Computed example of a mutant assay.
Amino acid sequence: MNPKQIIKEIKGKQEEIKSVIFVGCGASKAELYPAKFFLDSNAKNLRISHYTANEFNYKTPASLDETAIVISASLGGSTPETVKANAKAKERGAHVISLTNAANSALTKDASYVICHRFAENYGAKLEKMGYALELAVEILEQYEGYAHYEDMQIAFSKIYDLSQRAAESAIEDAKKFAEAYKNDPVIYVMSSGATNEVAYSTSICLMMEMQWINSGSFHSGEFFHGPFEIVDKDVPFILLMNEGSTRPIDSRALTFLQRFDTKTTVVDALDYGLSSAVPKAVVDYFNPMLLTAVFRVYAEELSYARKHPLTKRRYMWKLEY
């Protein structure tokens, strides 16, 4: 079933939905954030929340009942905390929709609906989990409240995957320069804003810390001036994932300060990859994360080659019990 059919079926069973709860861990949690951001920005009646799975399990929201839709995600479908979250959501009567790359994984056991996405095929495929979550959010809003820019979103969905694939392919030379410049840095900071905020977070905790063992921190561009800017100095390494749309002035203000003090700054800008030429202006905010995720994946790959440290290399993950 596609997102439209899934929400239509839920609506047939449950006329009133009060809560939408997004649940995941690590990169999967971050990939649910654009959908959460979309609903926060547009829903007038729905209560929206976004949990790391174990907090959902230990401090379960009171809103979890038959009037809740839970959207969970796990790439391999075996993340224990998220599997447990599905069971808890099912036990409370919620409508559980799970996103995974693994069709018969543990995550699917307690899900009311499952959407299997691609991942390894190409850069566009790596965006499908994020894209399906956003599609579900759009359908929830449209079918339960109505959404003025629904058709604009459909146009954007029809174009974003091919655009992101082309953008990633075109980024290789810039990514190689980034890799050479940053390969010996002991710490790299990452920031962004708007719907891309948790792409910056997952870039920091997953691509840098998990996959490259580089110390890193991430923060919202709007929070930069409320603490983090005190570590700015010449040659301190930053990555700014720069958005088109509503929050661009927030990113621009941070960039101006970084340039003022001659920091070592890499800007990956959605504007440079033609996002607004393909996506209607009214909805461009919600597609920055997909484009920027595809492009920065190339940067991370080139960094791994320059450091001779494969993105799949781990010390603890999958090797120890924890």
Rank of each mutant, 00 (worst) to 15 (best):
N45I: 05
K8H: 15
P61D: 05
E198T: 13
N288T: 06
Y189R: 14
P34N: 03
E15F: 08
H226I: 02
Y113E: 04
A282Q: 09
I172Q: 13
S246K: 15
P186H: 06
H95N: 10
A181P: 05
F296H: 14
A53H: 08
L107W: 03
E31I: 13
K4G: 11
Q212L: 11
S158R: 02
Y273M: 00
E198A: 09
Y123H: 14
I140D: 00
V236H: 02
T203H: 11
N42G: 02
N86K: 03
A137C: 05
R314D: 09
T79L: 04
Y182A: 02
S105K: 02
E15V: 09
K18V: 09
E9G: 04
V236L: 08
N101I: 06
F261I: 03
K308A: 14
I205P: 06
G245N: 00
G146K: 05
K176Q: 09
T60W: 06
K29Y: 14
T79H: 03
V279Q: 02
A87K: 08
R297D: 13
K177S: 15
R118K: 15
P186F: 07
V114E: 09
T256C: 14
A254D: 02
K18Q: 12
G93T: 04
I214V: 15
F22N: 03
A306Y: 08
A179D: 07
V83L: 02
K308Y: 08
A94G: 01
K159A: 10
T266P: 07
I160Y: 00
S72M: 15
D174F: 13
H309A: 09
H226D: 01
G222T: 01
G26E: 07
R297K: 15
K90I: 03
Y182K: 00
E16Y: 12
V187E: 11
I7K: 07
S158P: 05
I140E: 05
F56T: 00
S28P: 08
E121Y: 05
G194A: 08
R315C: 11
A306V: 11
T82F: 03
A167P: 01
L46S: 04
V232C: 11
S277V: 14
A89H: 00
L320E: 13
F219P: 14
N54D: 15
S216L: 06
D251L: 03
I97L: 02
I205W: 08
S304H: 01
A87S: 09
F22W: 01
Y51P: 04
S74H: 06
F296A: 02
D272S: 12
Y33L: 01
S164A: 13
S252G: 12
L275E: 07
H309K: 13
M211V: 05
Y286A: 00
P249M: 05
S277E: 15
E302T: 11
K29V: 12
K13H: 11
E145N: 04
Y273N: 03
M242S: 14
Y33Q: 04
V284G: 03
G131M: 14
W318S: 15
L292V: 08
W213V: 11
A181D: 15
A120C: 10
M290V: 11
H220Q: 10
D162R: 14
M209F: 12
G245P: 01
